[in-house]
Computed example of a mutant assay.
Amino acid sequence: MLTVHHLRQSQSERIVWLCEELELDYELKLYDRRQDNRLAPDEYKALHPMGIAPVITDGDLVLGESGAIIDYIAATYGPGSLVPAPDHPDFAQHLFWLHWSNGTFMATMMMQLMLTMSGAPEGMAHTFTADRARRGWEMVEQRLGEAPFFGGAQLTTADIMMGYPLTTARAMRGIKLRDDQPNLKVYLQRIGERPAYRRAMEKAEPGMEPVLS
C-alpha cells in the first residue's frame, strides 16, 4: 500500500494534498518534530538516506524528493489527472511552475533562512537573495493575474508544489501577505475552498489552521 510519511509542518504536506485530490486509498503516518531543534526525529531520518521530508513507501519502494514523489504518484495512481498532456496549451507553464517551486523559489527561501540562522553580516549574499526573493514574489503575483492556477485553467501538480511555500513555509519564515498581492490572496482563498485541500490539512496538521491569509 502507498504510505505517506508526513513530517509535520514540512513539504510532505504536498503529498497528502495530492493523495486527497486524487481520492487515493493510502496510509498516512505522522511524525512530530523534535522539541530541541525542530528537526525530524530519528525514525523519520531512518526512512531515506537524505533523512528529510517528504518520503513515501509503496511496497518495496522508498522514494524521497517532492517533485519525484508527485510525478510518481500522478503517473502511477492518477494517469491523466492533474497533469496537462504535452499538446495542451497549459503544458509548458505547468512544467515551469512545477519545477520552479523547489528549484528556485524554495531554494531562495532556504538561502535566506540559512543567512539569518548563521548571523551572516549584511552584504552581497543578503542583497543577492533579497533580490531573488523579490523577483520571485513578483512573478507569483503576475502569474496569478494571468490564470486562476499556476498550471493554467485548472489545478495541476504545479499548484500542489507551489502550495507549501505560499502557506506553511511562508508562515514559518514570518512572511506576511502585502496589499500589492491581491491575486495571491484570491488564489489562496480559492485553494482553501477545495474540499481535498481542507481534508489534507486536517489530516496532516490536526489542530493547525491552514495559513491562507
Rank of each mutant, 00 (worst) to 15 (best):
I56M: 01
D131R: 14
G152F: 07
A133D: 11
T157S: 10
I56P: 00
T57V: 09
T57P: 07
E21D: 10
L113K: 13
R38E: 12
F149I: 03
R8D: 01
V16W: 00
P54L: 04
S101E: 06
A196P: 06
M117P: 06
G163Q: 13
D58H: 14
A125K: 11
M1Q: 09
K176E: 15
R34V: 07
C19Y: 01
M109P: 01
I191H: 06
Y187E: 01
Y26I: 00
P121N: 05
G51Y: 04
P79N: 13
P210I: 10
R8H: 05
Q189L: 12
D179T: 12
M172H: 08
L144Q: 03
Y44A: 02
R135M: 10
H99V: 00
P195R: 08
E13V: 14
T168S: 15
F149Y: 15
V211S: 11
W137R: 10
H5G: 04
G59S: 10
N37S: 09
A200H: 03
T129K: 06
S66N: 14
F96T: 00
A196C: 08
P195N: 13
M162L: 14
G67K: 04
I52D: 01
Q189P: 07
H99Q: 07
G59D: 06
H126R: 14
D71M: 15
E20R: 03
I160C: 01
P49T: 05
D87P: 02
W17T: 01
M114G: 09
P195D: 12
F128G: 00
K29P: 02
R194P: 10
P195M: 12
A200Y: 04
P54H: 05
E43Q: 12
M172I: 11
L212Q: 09
Q112A: 12
T157L: 04
L82S: 04
L177E: 08
V211I: 14
Q154R: 10
P148A: 09
H6E: 02
R170Q: 14
Y31V: 03
R34F: 05
A46H: 09
P49L: 08
R38K: 13
Q112V: 11
W97V: 00
T129N: 12
P148V: 05
F128N: 08
M172F: 12
A74S: 15
L184T: 13
T168L: 14
F128K: 12
G192P: 10
A107H: 13
G51Q: 02
M161L: 14
H126Y: 09
A120T: 15
L61F: 07
W137L: 07
M106S: 15
G67T: 03
H48T: 01
Y187M: 01
P89M: 04
P182S: 10
P89I: 02
L47V: 03
D179V: 11
E209W: 07
P86R: 02
L18E: 00
L98F: 15
E209K: 15
A204W: 01
P182F: 13
P84N: 07
A204I: 03
T127Y: 10
R173P: 00
L144Y: 05
R14Q: 15
M162F: 04
L113E: 14
E21L: 13
A74C: 14
Q189G: 15
Q112K: 14
E23C: 04
K45I: 04
D131Q: 14
